[in-house]
Design a protein around this nucleic acid. Sequence first.
DNA 1: AATTATTTGTTAGTTGACTAATCATGTCAA
DNA 2: TTGACATGATTAGTCAACTAACAAATAATT
Lengths: 170, 170
Amino acid sequence: MLQLRDLPTPAILDKFVQRYPDADVTAVVTFLHLLRAGTDLSFALDAYLQQHALLQGRWWVLILLMRESSNTAAPSVLADKAGVSRATMTGLIDGLERDGLVERVPDPEDRRRLAIQLTAAGQAKLDEVMPDYYRRVRQLMQPLSESERKVFIELLDKIQAGASSLSAPL
Amino acid sequence: MLQLRDLPTPAILDKFVQRYPDADVTAVVTFLHLLRAGTDLSFALDAYLQQHALLQGRWWVLILLMRESSNTAAPSVLADKAGVSRATMTGLIDGLERDGLVERVPDPEDRRRLAIQLTAAGQAKLDEVMPDYYRRVRQLMQPLSESERKVFIELLDKIQAGASSLSAPL
DNA sequence: AATTATTTGTTAGTTGACTAATCATGTCAA
DNA sequence: TTGACATGATTAGTCAACTAACAAATAATT
């Protein structure tokens, strides 16, 4: 991903509008602000997780496992929920298993299947990271009141509803 | 980057709050919505650009060059503004130059320096992509009124102000 | 003036994503 | 019941990002 640093100035926007009259200035500015905020937060989250020898992908796997009542899930389910390919999930599980945070458990019913199990060490790693993570997220959102958060999420959802049409073939 | 598909249900959030009482539910929910919207838009943008044989990184370089009155910039400046390393920028420029969209121009004053110059083909590529891109962004933001856009950006900026502290060492 | 430090861009090697192909297993239908 | 197809996970190979080390050129220092 790209971390846009430099939002366009009004003068630059004007230059682009001159050449491309279809541009809607406030739409573009809003879009770019959102893109930048998203990537900045994602980078910051990665930087935080690296202090605990985790990356975003591996961290999400642990969380997804902890969400399950059995603390297990199939690799393909994890891949879907984390939004990565199965091949990528194989790699993530390799790393987590090497560090002893998860275990591959064969399925006695169907020998193609695996259950990925969160180990005690994996749970301990979450217990180490999550409280501080939650404190930081609380801090981050401090400036927004409860009602502002509600409004913000509503606006986000309105935008996101059309996200896929951004790339639709026509 | 990771594309989170599966936001936590209230039941899951409750489980996590039980174990980690520091969690602020609306803060986490807001944070995750924002993260997801950002990554979804970024993925959609990439998917769109790929239809034009561009990737986000290469596209931004072309835009950054068009922003300049001379249509040129130094590789290091481009790297800073695009938020990538100088090594990555070397690679991006390699690809763009191979496709004839930019040119490396030696600096007569200082023989370490280069100017990256947008070519006519590069400008033509932008002219091909940008009008449709702007129409799509306009469409995406259609659901938000002007005043909603204003509020939205203000809220985004409030959050982003604390983004770096998310990863600060203590 | 000569040495040291800094700056600019590139190269080399690593990482973690991806797609496509593969292997093993399971399912279904003629 | 066996041949064709489907499914789950892995392997192989590619791509674009990164860091670290580098060469060349310029600037600063003594």
